[in-house]
Design a binder for these strands. Structure first.
Lengths: 210, 210
DNA sequence: TTAAACTAAACAAACGTTTAATTGATTTTA
DNA sequence: TAAAATCAATTAAACGTTTGTTTAGTTTAA
């Protein structure tokens, strides 16, 4: 589906409000007000509030796909180095698009068979397959151990970053970082998560640690 | 606050519905219907929907506190063994009370200063302090390395288990476990998470892995 | 002139909450 | 001991808002 500038603006406002307050706690009037348009325009452009949500997912979910095609072809990096690039790529995308990820986190918890739920499921399957390719490559070359639960490994990566984002305030407080500006704090989080996850993944993938 | 049987029944029904559909998507009429009572009884007993939520948190949040007092005194276990007991204890509590944890996960994402938010914050601080005690003990005895980011370690534990719970359906599907009954599946998750997290924590805490 | 963009207003339904009346059991009074 | 009083528990109905959506009309630009 193609959207014009006005529609994209509405989607972006909706993303912001859904992320902050949740889908159900955000009214179409809230969205219309913040977008500076008439309430009727949302039905006019998208059909319904739910279809606006679906449009939001159609548009934004492609931005957060993990891409490994270039990585696999790259012959200058070791398997572990490739995994490390993937980790950084994932952290970068998650933090840059935390709003959309917050919406996704909430939708994941609900057990309903919605269009949005199936989009999330497809995204997860796709990401899993991408990572499996990298892992298998490392296993063939003998760099990685044979017994790797990729799903569980993904769960830790996604879970750790998700949890870090949704408990940012707590993290700032216990580390006395309340005054730090947003940009610097994001840098800090990225670095911390990067080192942390790389250490964990190395323990899960390689022979080095027993 | 003390609650009678009827009130407890209402809280339990509310917990179930909030977990399944979210707070905003659950109406007081839904709760009243499932509890087999009149809508007015919710205002009568709790004052409002929001205060029912607060009552729910007051009652259930104490059940999921991590307790380390007995562990610290125990002289038969090594520091790492104590951490492993703590991991299993956390997994057990999370899976047994997934409904309440789902509600907590959703509330954590919202950035509002509510009563519920402060209860969650207190719970996290308390759990963090408990774990810090165990870690420090291991560091003093020389079993654990000096440089440990306890918050980040907690983030991985909480995040991994949360993510596992909220993507149960996905996990079942990619592992061809759709037919497995709930009890067996929970056992499976517990075991998998237990082995996985213990491996990760060992890598973060001990000298064994480089 | 025509079609898309946009508006104010109205729509019915659902929302959380309150009201006022009724029930049912326990306690007090005669 | 029987009648009266008391009080919490419960109900159906109504309250005023807010909800997502639609309508019917107006503006704008090609």
């Amino acid at each position: 589906m193609e959207y014009n500038e006005k529609q994209i603006a509405i989607i972006d406002i909706a993303e912001k409000l859904f992320a902050e307050n949740g889908y159900d706690a955000t009214s179409v009037r809230d969205i219309a007000h913040d977008a500076g348009i008439n309430v009727a325009m949302i039905s006019y452009y998208f059909g319904s509030k739910e279809k606006l949500m679906e449009a939001l997912f159609e548009r934004k979910s492609t931005n957060i796909r993990i891409k490994v095609e270039n990585l696999i072809q790259n012959e200058n990096l070791s398997p572990l180095q490739k995994i490390n690039v993937l980790i950084d790529d994932y952290i970068e995308k998650f933090i840059a698009q935390q709003g959309f990820h917050k919406i996704m986190m909430r939708e994941q918890i609900i057990e309903k068979d919605t269009t949005v739920a199936s989009i999330i499921l497809e995204l997860k399957k796709r990401n899993l397959e991408s990572i499996k390719l990298l892992i298998q490559e490392g296993q063939k070359s003998g760099s990685f151990i044979k017994n790797i639960d990729v799903v569980l490994m993904m769960t830790t990566m996604v879970g750790t970053v998700s949890q870090m984002i949704s408990s940012q305030y707590f993290y700032r407080e216990v580390n006395n970082m309340q005054q730090m500006d947003e940009i610097e704090f994001r840098k800090h989080m990225k670095k911390k998560l990067s080192v942390h996850l790389k250490k964990l993944f190395k323990a899960l993938l390689t022979y080095d640690s027993q």
